[in-house]
Structures are given as C-alpha cells and as structure tokens.
Design a protein around this nucleic acid. Structure first.
Lengths: 251, 251
DNA sequence: TAGTGGTCTAGACCACGTC
DNA sequence: ACGTGGTCTAGACCACTAC
C-alpha cells in the first residue's frame, strides 16, 4: 500500500503532518479514488508503527480539507470534489489593491451629527428617544482615481465626540469602536448589483447608471443589537471577486 | 473561575464539546475579553479533572471558530472579532431559490459541436490540433421567470457524444463529467458586475444595459489543465449575496 | 461477533517565551 | 529555570455498521 520509509519519525516535521501530506498526495494522484475507502486507522497505525491518535490527527486534517469523510462503523472514504460551493472573500476588494502596491487612501468627505428620522430608527430597531446619529461619508481612492463611495451611520454617544478630521480606521467597525461605546461583535453584509445614481456617478467620476457593486452592512454588538449601518458603492469596472474551489494544489 | 459542576462526565455529550461550549459562552458573555489569556491547558485539565488532550480538543474547536489563538510558550488568548473578512457563498445564488420553494428549472436552449477559434484555444491552453468543442446554452428560470443565462464550453471527446436533450446535471462540472473523459477537480470563478447586452436582455426579459452579475468559470482536471469554461449572467434585480461575519450566536 | 471510527486517559518529551 | 502550548504514545471503552 504505502512505503514505510516515507514517514520519518525523527524529522522536525510532525508525523501527523507527514502522514497528512502522504495521504493527500495519494488522493490527488488518484491512487485513492472518490468513494473508495482509505486504509483503516488501525491499519495505518500498525503499518507505520505510530499511535492511532497521531493517525486520527492526520485524517482530521484531510476531513477539514474536505478530501475525505468518516463514517462511524464503516470507514473513511475519499470525497468527491465539490465545485458548486463558491466562496468569495471580500478581502479581495481592498487587499488586491494593496497587493498591487497602489497608492490608496480613504478620504473623509463629511462627518457630522444628524437627527434621526423614522427610517434610521427602524434600521437600528430604536424608539423615539434616540434622536441623534453619527454620519460619515468617505471615498476610497487609488492613484488619484476614486474607486468607492460609502456612507456610514452609528448611534451617537456623547462621551466620545468626533475629534479628528483624519480617520485612522475608516471601516464601519473601526468607527464604531472609536466613536461610540459599543463593541462590534458581528456583521451582516449584503452584496447586490445596481446602476449608480447621478450623485454616486459624479463622486466616482463615472457615467450615470454605470453598473456598480452595492454593499450594505449592519454591525451588531454582543447582544445582537444593531450599532452601525453603511452603504458602499464600488466601481464595477475596477472591482472583481475571485474564488478558487476544489482540490487545487497549493505547493 | 468556572463551576466544576458544569461539566458532566457521564453525559452522552462529549466532554470536549461541553468544555468548548462553556468557554465559548464565557467569551461571548465577555467574562473573557479580547486580548486576555484563557486559563492554561494544565489549569483547565486539573480543575475539571479531565485529560489535557481533551482540553486541547476543546480549544482546537475555539481556534477553528476564530475565537482564540494559541501562542507556544505564552498562552492562549481571546481573539478580536474580525469583521473585515466578508465571505459570500455562491450557494446562496441558487440555494435561496430552492429554499423559497420556488419552481425552478434549467432549460437547454442549444447544445452542439463547434469549431475552435483561436480565442477558445487560448482559454484552454491548447494547440492547433484541437479543433472541436462542445457548446451549451442554458437558462435557469423560476416560476416562469428567467433568472440567469449561461454559455458553457468543454473540450470535445468523441467517445461520449451528446445523446440527451435534457440535462441531468446542467452545471459545468456536471457537463464535463457526463460528456467528456475528464474529471473536474478544481474550479476558478470570477464575479463581476456588468451592463447586460441586448442579446442577454432579450433572453432574460429585462431592459438592455440592466446591471447584472457576471460569473466566469474555469474548471480544471487533476493536472490543472483547463477542461471547461463558462460565462453566466444573473439578473441583478433577482439575486443578492449575504455574508455573516464575527461571533454571532447560532443557537 | 468482528471491525470501524469517536472519545478519553495519564502520562511523556519537545520547542518556545519569559524571567 | 520555569511555564506555556505542540506533539506523541499505548492503551481503554464506547457507538455504530455489517455480517
């Protein structure tokens, strides 16, 4: 089945990791095909003369990589690559810009205290007694080109007034942590496509009705109380999301 | 620190899972704050009179949940919730439709063998000798409304001709598995926004230049050789992607 | 009944960070 | 030197599956 000498017990590389890589390679090469059972934990354990717990650690890595699945009482089997689960990480949105080494910066267009209207109170699930919110308008630009425009709202708390015109952390969770007494604990984001409005178009320097990414974000504190809301528009001709799926090699 | 009687060793619920939930709750409630160290493995182990390996299993769950991070020689610390990593699962795209219980189906508009042009050969990184590709055009509709339009290409292999007008698995990996001898192993997807063309608009029954999601997909076999390519257009007014991030409660 | 994976123990030695 | 997390052992008992 497998050569014994492919595991080096005296190596600085953990045994479980060597075994994980060994099995992973077997599956990638097709020696073990989807649906087939891999050797039992006891077989591997006795074959390599290593503890069963170490074998289980290696298999756990395979499971979390989605390459095998275990069934109690039956065995452990090679999985079929699932290629329908697309995962886009919005890191891409700004990380890509950073990685390209572009000169990007966030500019604060406006920051003020506003009176709450009903729509805003509804978003924050608040009653009539909450009258004030913080309001921010920011623009992200790179190489003197404006890429995205965002408006943000947070609940106003007197104890932490707006002192700085420059924003250290312009993200919505950052603003909440800096300017309010709430602690951001979770966030919900909804991505849609839209045709940009005239206002957005003029700010971003693109044509009206150009296609854009539209991301609405709600930030919650530890009690799942909404403490921040934002709406961002990203130029459709400057952003894209990329997803890799399946058992691609990482080496 | 923690009440002993909150771990029931005789329960059918695994000890590591009870301990995981216990620590998770402490962190959520704020008893343990971001940056603070959680009790050492030895402390927890002796406090509850359970094995250190069991404690490690519980902590491993916390680590993979992103709630704590371990540092060798220093300790294990509560993490700060990261709210900048947005993860959109494209499952949403069709799963949502399924979950709503809508009547959705995929319709095959066209399926034929086409001659390769240079552009297509370039996409598949193939030479002049590859002359033929399979070409599919499909539409996804729900409740008699067309939602998305997709064109797909795969390398033609004579041994598996197109026999059926109905498609069992209309996904690109599915078509490749059914109609070619290649085995889909990984996929790359790129999501963009665009203004739809007149052809797309007429097929989907929307106005020209309406904003749409555009997803290009390349499917690879185990040698990372491209074996399929598709371009799909999704109605911008019918689709959205939702992302939850941070330490939201799941109960 | 036999074999599988799931959980758990009570130790051990190591690499690393702190003092 | 000491305490931390990282790895590993050689067993054990259990729940589940298949025969």
């Amino acid at each position: 089945m497998i050569q014994t000498d492919m595991i080096d017990k005296s190596s600085v590389i953990p045994i479980y990791y060597q075994l994980f890589k060994l099995l992973e390679e077997q599956i990638r090469r097709g020696d073990l095909k989807p649906g087939e059972a891999i050797p039992t934990e006891h077989e591997i354990s006795s074959h390599f003369e290593i503890s069963r717990m170490t074998v289980r650690r290696a298999i756990a890595e395979l499971v979390s990589a989605g390459m095998v699945y275990a069934q109690q009482g039956r065995g452990t089997f090679v999985a079929t690559p699932k290629l329908d689960n697309i995962v886009f990480e919005l890191n891409d949105f700004n990380q890509e810009i950073k990685q390209r080494g572009l000169n990007y910066k966030t500019t604060l267009l406006e920051a003020k205290i506003i009176r709450a209207d009903k729509e805003l109170r509804d978003k924050f699930e608040l009653g009539e007694d909450y009258k004030r919110f913080l309001y921010f308008r920011t623009v992200l630009s790179a190489e003197d080109e404006r890429l995205s425009y965002e408006v943000k709202y947070t609940i106003y708390s007197k104890s932490k007034p707006i002192l700085e015109t420059e924003l250290k952390d312009p993200s919505l969770p950052g603003l909440i942590a800096t300017h309010t007494e709430y602690v951001p604990m979770s966030a919900k984001k909804v991505l849609q496509v839209a045709a940009c409005t005239e206002e957005e178009a003029s700010i971003l320097g693109i044509a009206s009705n150009s296609p854009v990414f539209l991301i609405e974000q709600t930030v919650y504190d530890q009690d799942l109380k909404p403490v921040g809301w934002s709406k961002a528009v990203y130029r459709g001709d400057r952003y894209k999301l990329t997803s890799y799926d399946g058992w691609y090699k990482k080496d």
